[in-house]
Design a protein around this nucleic acid. Structure first.
Lengths: 138, 138
DNA sequence: GTACGATCTCCAGTCACTGGAGAAGCAAGG
DNA sequence: CCTTGCTTCTCCAGTGACTGGAGATCGTAC
């Protein structure tokens, strides 16, 4: 049984975050020592690493809840895991596209700046007039 | 002088958001009618559009505060606007890179899924074992 | 006069943490 | 036995940028 500090070190998840996960029901409540300290079984490391990894891939807590649930039932069909991953993928593609549009616009703005006074600054100028944008839907 | 609803329509910024901007000092407090309604001068439309545009490009409120400040002083040098835009650009590049790494990883995970049981699912499998990742720093 | 829409203020909720305050447990050294 | 210092405890407030609801009031048209 590990105390919370060791679990944090081994899983790479901070102590307050572990407690937070417990409070929202993503981690089960662990056993307690006589002095009321949390004591985790060794599997908790694996579970927390799983959660951390999913967070690093940008999955929301609710999605992770379901993924973690599935991971505990290896005989079930995995179509939902597939679906969640595809949804996340679509979200990512969308974000990348939006960011790329922002990047292009910023590059153009910076390029149009005379680097002198505000009056001739492309950055301020374009911000003040959306019609000067290439991508009207960013 | 425009009431808040008209300002919202013409600027494309929602009413609660306008009031929020006022509360944080991004918009000056407008005049009031006898019945305590906000009454904006016509320039407020331009200012709000400027803010909206900057938000759409992902600038934080604090950066917008400075950009809007600069826009009102056309004779000042614009190096700070330049700098803010370059910082935002760097942020975007960084985010895109991270998202691209996540996308690649997800694609690989989905590709490795046998689409049957959880036990053979690439998605669940890779989540449970970070060592199976190509990019160890996502 | 009354119905309806626009607006008012205030407050709570979103998401996923993060950090501080103040108290208590615990192991080692003197 | 006592102190020192580390770890952990609970509770609560803050982050960013809004968003939305409750309940009251204003303004106008019929």
């Amino acid at each position: 049984m590990l105390p919370i500090g060791r679990l944090a070190r081994e899983s790479g998840v901070k102590i307050p975050t572990i407690r937070y996960y417990e409070s929202i029901g993503l981690l089960p409540e662990p056993a307690r020592s006589e002095g009321n300290r949390r004591l985790y079984p060794v599997e908790a490391v694996r579970r927390l690493k799983f959660i951390r990894h999913a967070r690093e891939l940008g999955f929301e807590i609710d999605a992770i809840r379901r993924l973690a649930q599935m991971a505990q039932h290896p005989a079930d069909p995995c179509c939902e895991a597939d679906l969640l991953a595809r949804e996340r993928l679509a979200e990512i593609e969308d974000k990348i596209a939006k960011l790329a549009a922002q990047r292009d616009e910023l590059l153009r703005m910076i390029g149009e700046c005379a680097h002198g006074k505000v009056a001739e600054c492309g950055v301020i100028d374009v911000l003040g007039d959306h019609d000067k944008c290439l991508h009207h839907r960013h």
